Amino acid sequence: MASNDPDREEEAAAAGEDEDTGAQVAPIVTLSEVAVTTGEEEEDALLDLKAKLYRFDKEGNQWKERGTGSVKLLKHRETGKVRLLMRQVKTLKICANHLGRTLRPVLDSVLPSVKIQEHAGNDKSCVWHASDFADGELKEEMFCIRFGSVENCKKFMETVEGIAESSEKNEEKESEDASDAAGLLDKLSVHESKTEKAPEEVPAAAVKADDETEK
């Protein structure tokens, strides 16, 4: 006698679906593990925060979203150079890549008067100009980045400003060292020049002996 209970029929159907038939299905495609290089292997992260990035479209005169993901300040272990790098979440596509000089990421190739600053009307955001390489070519861009909290925004700005200050101090020291070295080289060159042009000194005894011989 057939059962009219729908719950029992569903249980029986589910049991049939879960029943192990013992059949083995070989995979159609075998995937091998591939090592992926990101270019960050020789760098240490000074900062790593989640944020949303915007780029200012000059033609449309409006902000356009560039991507959401993790923004990092990376310092190279050997050269000491710092850059700002941001990748989109999941796809890991680069949406910002500022190649900086030694300890000077965001402010590289930017007018001295332009600095990173808070976005007007939003204390979770800040704006800056930079020569960006995210699209494979160096372009002047204006960026705005928005964080999930005021604390993260301040942390980002303070870290960038601290790196810029360290860069200025290092550049001043390098300039002073170069000037000192140049001064020493100039003094050495002048001393060598005078030594080459100075006449040979003749002992007084030899001069007297020559005079007596002539007499």
Rank of each mutant, 00 (worst) to 15 (best):
V110F: 03
A23M: 12
Q62L: 11
L111Y: 09
H98P: 09
K72Q: 12
E19V: 11
R77M: 05
V127D: 03
R87L: 04
A164L: 01
Q117Y: 00
E78Y: 13
M157Q: 13
E140N: 11
A134D: 04
A130V: 04
L111H: 15
D135G: 06
F56Y: 14
E158P: 00
V190D: 15
S193P: 04
A181Q: 06
D211K: 14
A120F: 01
K58S: 07
D135S: 13
A181C: 07
L111W: 14
N170A: 13
T37G: 01
E165A: 12
E11I: 08
V190I: 14
S175V: 09
P112D: 02
V190E: 15
K124C: 03
A26H: 10
L92K: 14
I116Q: 02
T30K: 14
L47K: 00
E176L: 15
A96L: 04
N170E: 06
G60Y: 02
L107R: 15
D211A: 13
Y54V: 11
T21D: 12
V114A: 12
S109I: 10
K93F: 04
P203R: 13
I163A: 05
R55G: 01
L47E: 01
E19T: 15
E17R: 10
T213D: 13
E59N: 08
V25K: 09
W128L: 01
E151F: 06
E10A: 15
D5W: 13
N97T: 05
V106G: 08
E141T: 01
R83F: 07
P199V: 00
P6G: 04
E151N: 00
S149P: 02
E176F: 15
M142E: 12
N61Q: 08
E137H: 10
A13Q: 06
L138P: 14
S131H: 15
A14V: 09
L103H: 10
K72G: 06
K155S: 01
L84D: 00
E141K: 10
T195Y: 15
L185Y: 08
K81L: 12
S166N: 10
A14M: 12
K58T: 04
S113V: 13
L47F: 04
D5I: 04
E201W: 06
K155I: 00
L84T: 14
A26G: 09
E65P: 11
T38S: 08
E161W: 12
K72E: 04
A35F: 08
I28W: 11
C153G: 05
E151C: 02
A120E: 15
L184S: 12
S131M: 09
A204N: 12
D18E: 13
M157K: 07
K173G: 03
R146M: 06
P112K: 07
A13H: 12
G100E: 05
K155W: 04
C95P: 03
G22H: 03
L46Y: 06
V25A: 05
A51S: 08
T79G: 01
P199Y: 01
K155L: 14
V207M: 09
H191N: 15
K50A: 04
T91Y: 04
F147G: 00
D132Q: 00
